[in-house]
């Protein structure tokens, strides 16, 4: 399929990424190459084949919902770019 500049920009928006103009040109070409190759998969006959997610067929394994990793507020917050009064600080979201 054709990879247009519009599609590249749409994918940037979906991924919350902004490419430089040079990156954009290169990415347009690279995506065209890669998807051109990936399109080969269309030749594979998969009529009637159920999609498989987990190879061993395991589903929905749960455990008791208990805290097993508490008491690390300080270490967790020390990785955040901005904190205030024991919380993570983010820019204002509403005016």
């Amino acid at each position: 399929m054709e990879i247009t500049q519009d599609l590249v920009r749409y994918l940037e928006a979906l991924g919350r990424i902004e490419l430089s103009p040079e990156e954009e040109v290169k990415t347009q070409k690279d995506l065209a190459d890669i998807l051109g190759y990936i399109d080969k998969l269309g030749e594979l006959d998969t009529a009637g084949v159920e999609p498989l997610s987990h190879a061993a067929g395991r589903t929905n394994i749960t455990r008791e919902d208990v805290v097993i990793n508490g008491d690390m507020q300080e270490q967790v917050l020390s990785n955040a770019p901005e904190t205030k009064d024991g919380t993570i600080l983010v820019p204002r979201t509403f005016d």
């Binding site: 599609l7 590249v8 994918l11 940037e12 979906l14 991924g15 919350r16 990424i17 902004e18 490419l19 990156e23 290169k26 990415t27 690279d30 995506l31 890669i34 998807l35």
Partner: peptide, 21 residues
Amino acid sequence: IKSRSQGFGLEVKRRIMLGNF
């Protein structure tokens, strides 16, 4: 946007975009 655009290298960005596609 700025954290992701400046924090990730091009190969990572390419795969994120492919994945979203």
